[in-house]
């Protein structure tokens, strides 16, 4: 099963990159969110999918039964989900801000491109010498 999941993760990852490469900022955010999901699945699969019982300890036991799922990657993913969520929100706000500044969401347009001025370091205008 993990191998199938590996294929799914790879395809999701590729799709995410493709979306991010499109240069349309909304699609970039979608790609970012998709990549978060792909990576979470990757961590999940790395912890193996052998057992399907949740990592809980029964009320009359002090240690879990032998066949519970791996708890460690789950804790990592829980953290990753929330961080990814925060980052997606921040990215969305950046998108909002970028549109306000550039009046477009197409990153291929000139308003997103920068150019260093060609002058050689004479950027400070000459002030008058104090007497």
């Amino acid at each position: 099963m993990e191998f199938l999941l590996a294929l799914v993760v790879g395809l999701m990852f590729g799709s995410a990159l493709f979306l991010m490469l499109s240069g349309i900022l909304v699609r970039f955010v979608f790609g970012f969110a998709l990549m978060g999901n792909a990576v979470n699945l990757l961590i999940f699969a790395a912890g193996r999918l052998t057992h399907v019982n949740p990592p809980l300890i029964d009320p009359d036991q002090t240690i879990p039964a032998a066949s519970v799922a791996n708890a460690l990657p789950q804790a990592l993913i829980l953290t990753a989900i929330v961080i990814g969520f925060a980052m997606t929100i921040f990215l969305l706000v950046l998108l909002y801000r970028a549109y306000d500044q550039a009046r477009t969401l197409d990153a291929d347009l000139n308003s997103f491109l920068v150019e260093i001025p060609k002058t050689t370091g004479q950027h400070v205008s000459e002030k008058k010498e104090p007497a």
């Binding site: 790879g10 395809l11 999701m12 990159l17 493709f18």
Partner: peptide, 27 residues
């Protein structure tokens, strides 16, 4: 979310190939 500037077909294909290779590498 439409693109204002038209993307060339070759660029889309190039992007798709790179993404696919990266994804399969991850697999």
């Amino acid at each position: 979310m439409d693109a204002v500037k038209k993307r060339s077909r070759s660029r889309t294909i190039r992007d798709a190939c790179l993404s696919l290779v990266a994804g399969l590498l991850l697999t």
